[in-house]
Design a binder for these strands. Structure first.
Length: 503
RNA sequence: GGCGCGUUGGUGUAACUGGUUAACACGCCGCCCUCUCAAGGCGGAGAGCACGGGUUCGAGUCCCGUACGCGCUACCA
């Protein structure tokens, strides 16, 4: 069997969105699984809409996801000459004709309505379809502008066996005489994809279901070109919570994969989440109810048969800061952060801390053990990588340059006036400890509480807020040990000064 | 309008070729743990499988119809 070759062919009309990312992922998984090649091709036929910046966005997204391509990126526009040649070839052998109808300018917004309205009138035979070659040539020679259209057969049907949607058939009379070449000579999508896929030896076309109807046109073009069509596999769509289309205009940054990168997602976690949107390893022996899969496992488990037919909803709540994206994605990310090997997590946390100016080289030198322990503390309740600088700041700064949560201060420091006296005393007691560990500090604090006749919880919560500014966080004695003796003593004394006197 | 595709709890999914009280995960609620918050453990609510017919001893699984959603119907991709 010859080599499997698949491609991801995004149009650079925006950044890499989750739908595109998932299409790229499935192509990549298939290529890796089958030992084939994964090709990246940018469909920039419509040059007016393309920009280098947008191409960069796509490349960045793929890189972050770790979807490396074996060939490319190719640019469809580079092949325009070949696409044109193909169109003229079809013109010559009678599979296409020149249409001299004057161009109608339609803007993107109204084109749907206009075309739907036109379709309502019923299909009409293009008056130029049967123009004699002589007359057609003559008019072309005279400089009259024309578009080259495919001469869709009047009889018969097209068919292909989709790997996901099974046998697809369509009557040719339902298919319009699609334009192949614009009057300005630019090749159009349906021609370009086919020619490029032939040129690149693509064996499997895995793409969004929105192309399912187009595929019939492409099948016709393959026939006209005398080439076998590849195997098609159409993916279900990813929809917004209202089951409508996911779009940049309506849903903003939430659909861009770079948003997830910047928000502190682990690439593997996002890939894992994406893989389960519209695909499942159902029926695979021994997989059971698992949902967490490493990249290698996904590659092994992946198959076109596991792809669903029905669309999936990307479930997020607009305007909810905590659940800004799909909660399962968030959960999965937390799961990865919590369980991944420290060696893999370390560099991610490092660059995150560097971004917020909290990184020190000693963290991978003499203080590495301390740093890893501290990261271990934070990771247990982190949902994204940005939680490391956010929750971790009190551990990484020497001074008091971290935020004190107002409610926490009120509840844990100001509520009981006795703390103004107790905290400095506790600080002094801590200062006497030679060995400053989880156990030794806990023993000391509890004994101190007993002596003073107060509940340990009072001091514990006050100390937590003194050391971290928060009312919530890891177990207090883990915090104390991580913050260390000097800072613990200093911070306890500091907050005591801030406490309201007397009352 | 035409053509195509789809429809299992709020979301993602499972349910071998029709055969136990429709399963799992996320989310939600409660309990336990506990110095807080998470995590973790335990338990619970939530779908009778879009709706209506049919076939069958028996249907989420097969057939027909309807509704709804989505896609295509461009000199966009």
């Amino acid at each position: 069997m010859s080599e499997i070759r698949v491609r991801f062919a995004p149009s650079p009309t925006g950044y890499l969105h989750v739908g595109g990312a998932r299409a790229a992922l499935f192509n990549w998984l298939f290529a890796r699984k089958m030992g084939g090649k994964f090709i990246l091709r940018v469909e920039d036929t419509d040059i007016q809409r393309s920009s280098e910046e947008m191409v960069r966005g796509i490349l960045e997204g793929l890189e972050w996801l770790g979807l490396d391509y074996d060939e490319g990126p190719y640019f469809q526009s580079d092949n325009a000459e070949k696409h044109r040649a193909a169109a003229y070839g079809l013109l010559e052998n009678g599979w296409a004709y020149r249409d001299f109808t004057p161009k109608e300018e339609r803007d993107d917004a109204t084109v749907k309505k206009v075309t739907a309205e036109a379709a309502r009138q019923g299909k009409v035979t293009n008056p130029f379809r049967n123009l004699s070659p002589e007359e057609s040539d003559a008019r072309a020679r005279s400089g009259e502008p024309f578009v080259i259209r495919f001469k869709t057969p009047e009889e018969g049907k097209t068919s292909f066996d989709d790997a996901v949607f099974d046998l697809q058939e369509r009557d040719c009379k339902e298919i319009e005489d699609l334009a192949l070449l614009r009057s300005d000579g630019h090749p159009l999508y349906n021609l370009s994809v086919v020619v490029d896929d032939i040129l690149m030896g693509v064996t499997h076309v895995i793409r969004g279901q929105d192309h399912l109807s187009n595929t019939h046109k492409q099948v016709l073009i393959y026939q006209a070109l005398g080439k076998p069509a590849p195997r098609f596999a159409h993916l279900p769509l990813i929809l917004a919570p209202n089951k409508g289309k996911l779009s940049k205009r309506k849903h903003g940054e939430i659909v861009s994969v770079t948003t997830y990168r910047d928000a502190g997602f682990i690439p593997d976690a996002f890939v894992n989440f994406l893989a389960l949107l519209g695909w499942s390893p159902a029926g695979t022996e021994g997989v059971g109810d698992r949902e967490i899969f490493s990249r290698e496992e996904l590659i092994n488990l992946f198959s076109l048969e596991g792809i669903h037919k029905s669309n999936a909803v990307f479930n997020f709540t607009e305007g909810d800061a905590r659940n800004w994206t799909d909660q399962k994605a968030l959960w999965m990310n937390a799961e990865y952060i919590k369980t991944m090997p420290m060696e893999k997590l370390f560099p991610m946390v490092k660059s995150e801390l560097q971004r917020s100016g909290l990184w020190r080289d000693e963290y991978e030198g003499e203080r590495r053990a301390w740093f890893e322990r501290t990261v271990g503390l934070i990771r247990e309740r982190a949902r994204t990588l940005t939680d490391f600088p956010k929750h971790g700041r009190p551990y990484f700064v020497d001074d008091l340059n971290f935020e004190f949560d107002e409610a926490a201060v009120k509840k844990n420091l100001h509520k009981d006036p006795a703390l103004k006296e107790l905290l400095p005393q506790l600080a002094d007691a801590f200062a006497t400890l030679d060995e400053f560990t989880h156990d030794s500090t806990e023993a000391l604090l509890r004994e101190f509480a007993d002596e003073k006749g107060v509940k340990a919880g009072l001091l514990i919560n006050a100390t937590r807020t003194a050391l971290t500014g928060q009312a919530v966080g890891p177990g207090l004695f883990d915090v104390v040990a991580a913050v260390g003796k000097d800072r613990t003593v200093a911070r306890l004394k500091h907050v005591a000064q801030l406490a309201p006197g007397g009352q």
